[in-house]
Amino acid sequence: MNASVPHIEVMRSQLGRARGLGAGGSGTEHWWAERVTAASLLPLSTWFVVQMFRLGGADHADVVKWGGKPVNATMLTALIIATFYHAQLGLQVIVDDYVHGKAHLPTRILVKFVTSLLGLLGVFAVVKLVVAGSRRS
């Protein structure tokens, strides 16, 4: 075909191209969520490492006071949610790659369950620290 004549290179509808989805109609969300959580974990985990320099070896009263401050509680909650969401996405890929047959679905559900519960435990620990902090002041 003459290269200067306008033509469609790929057998794919223009709507399909605009939506950016493959033949499955979906599938980019998982990949994208993994990157977005990874990028947001860079500043959040750096913040946590700096905090650990301020907090390493501290006793209970100091840690409770630290966790009760609004900015710390916000950063901690964001870190916990991003961490366990990212962990869930990553572990899911590992399960998809290595666990076959009947065990696949239960293992995937277990991974979702455990990572979600750990994340919730972290969030409620922060909530309790905030409540304890506001009660004292």
């Binding site: 962990a87 572990l91 435990l121 972290g122 620290l129």
Partner: peptide
Amino acid sequence: GVVATGGAALGVFWLAAAA
């Protein structure tokens, strides 16, 4: 990544212990 998840679980337990 798997080890980091395990460590994060320990970190959450540490926070829960403080709470």
